[in-house]
Amino acid sequence: MMSNKEIFPGWPALEGMAIQNVVFQLRFTVSKTFGVPGAIIVHNGHPNEFLLISFNLELPDRSTAHYVTESWVYNTEKTDGRIFFRNKVCTSQSRVDFRSQESLDPIA
């Protein structure tokens, strides 16, 4: 499932001279069954690249989901965009479950 697209507000006005970090607040509306997003997709329609320093998502339980970014996002008109995954720790029990699932469904 994918959420709606949110556009960085006020992007054209960011023509200052100095190098600085710019903070954007984005709001995504998804179905309740959507769950915590596991990744984000970033599109850049501008000819110049920008550095996505960080991206965090505030969850309904007041916790925060962090996504691994710190990467330059170049123009994505000819691609499907950059994808950044959530930095979520995979517990040992989860790994056991995954391995069990793999053993049940071996790759032919």
């Binding site: 190098i19 607040q25 995504f28 179905s31 550095l51 965090n56 998502l57 505030e58």
Partner: peptide, 16 residues
């Protein structure tokens, strides 16, 4: 529906 509030920090390739 549920709303997620995201915070993105970027550094734009400015004129400098």
């Amino acid at each position: 529906v549920v709303e997620y509030f995201g915070t993105a920090v970027i550094m734009k390739k400015l004129q400098m």
